[in-house]
Design a protein around this nucleic acid. Structure first.
Ligand SMILES: [Mn+2]
Ligand SMILES: [Mn+2]
Ligand SMILES: [Mn+2]
Ligand SMILES: [Mn+2]
Lengths: 221, 221
DNA sequence: TTATTAATTTAGACTAATCTAAAAAATAAA
DNA sequence: TTTATTTTTTAGATTAGTCTAAATTAATAA
């Protein structure tokens, strides 16, 4: 199954997928250009090709959505990306801020049996090192309900289970502050002045984080 | 270190490397075309490019050799290919006849730290699943002295340690006959009529193999 | 040593993916 | 509801890698 698409086509499909699971499900040419580091003109060319292959629904000037086929292809790439990230962290000992670029290449390796064996080898993990859910082999995604720390109330507690910002600087910062996945936190104080928040970590020590940081840490209540 | 070369350039370098470690160290355009499944005209184009990049020594109509830089690049690809094969067999449970094509893709993933970590994770193996030596991170290859079964004498014994034919049909045949790496064999009889050979396997049972098969099994005495 | 055959290179063309600059359409502002 | 701005598309080029067919060079045979 799953026809072979070029490296490049796969990157576009993944970009469209990620953009469409964000705000609006319709994605614009410029958004895609930005995400894929290309120019709008190049995107238009590729959109025509993907539309010809029935991977996207595309009407000139109206943006695109993925077809069922396109979505399946995209989810499969996401599955591969996240499984490889787990491998890199769990088996090879990479840090969570070091794996993205390598997984970006590995996700294009084409072998159904490879990825399913890898999945088993890793113990069929539910989430990648950043807490993002790993689609199962049928393409189903079991997304846990998570809330941003910035949306939590005084005294509320939970466990850090994901991030919505994947840059290396951000991840390293969390690492340094001891705010990695699995850490228990409690909202100890909400600072009115600038919206920053004081957390109690693992029921022991305190940490102050800015609103900007708080917005990008996801917690399971 | 190690400048980035395209997927395609890497495949050419590897082809030239393998061809030049065979018989003559000078490799011809047609040989490369055959190994890379392309046409001679395409090879000529690529040879010019590789020569410009100082990866090969190329004089029109005279064939090519790798420069030191080119050889280093080629050996590094071979290292990656073989390490990935070990991973696929040892960790993911693939059979030795199933891994070549996947490794053919994985060998192009570009990350020094990835491959060195993988090497460590696998326990710094000396050889791949087909008995081929794995270059160390400095590019040195520790090749063991092996002889073809077809070159062995009556009563001589040794351990199967490699193959010089990597096709799936051949590997499956060996698998079925129990002639896998690590098997102890002894030359029990040389059949004059057709050159076929009767082996005693693990000091117990006997196997008859054709001269053609015998030529492709490598033994450590 | 000349003629024939084989190997290699050049010429010219094609596809995928990209770009810049210009044109067209859609959106926002006046 | 015109005008201005932004977004998107088209036009025309470029680069990497490939091909077929023709020309050239080398190797082999007569
Ligand atoms: Mn990618
Ligand atoms: Mn991730
Ligand atoms: Mn390859
Ligand atoms: Mn091998």
């Amino acid at each position: 199954m799953s026809t072979i698409h070029s490296f490049t086509e796969e990157n576009y499909l993944k970009a469209i997928y990620h953009l469409s699971t964000g705000n609006s499900s319709v994605v614009s040419t410029n958004q895609i250009a930005e995400m894929t580091n290309t120019k709008a003109a190049s995107v238009t060319d590729m959109l025509k090709k993907l539309a010809d292959k029935k991977l996207i629904n595309y009407i000139k000037y109206q943006g695109v959505t993925l077809t069922e086929t396109g979505k399946k292809a995209a989810v499969n790439i996401v599955r591969k990306h996240r499984l490889w990230e787990v491998f890199l962290v769990e088996k090879l000992g990479f840090k969570w801020d070091e794996v993205h670029d390598i997984a970006e290449e590995l996700e294009h390796i084409n072998s159904e049996s490879l990825i399913n064996r890898l999945d088993d080898f890793l113990g069929n993990p539910a989430a990648d090192p950043h807490g993002d859910p790993i689609p199962d082999r049928s393409g189903t995604i079991h997304q846990k309900k998570l809330v941003r720390i910035s949306d939590m109330l005084q005294e509320q507690s939970g466990m850090i289970s994901g991030v919505s910002e994947h840059s290396s600087v951000f991840l390293k910062l969390l690492e340094k502050m001891g705010l990695t996945l699995g850490t228990k936190i409690m909202i100890s104080e909400l600072i009115e002045f600038d919206g920053s928040i004081i957390l109690t970590v693992n029921e022991t020590s305190d940490r102050t984080i800015s609103r900007e940081v708080a917005k990008n840490i996801l917690v399971m209540l």
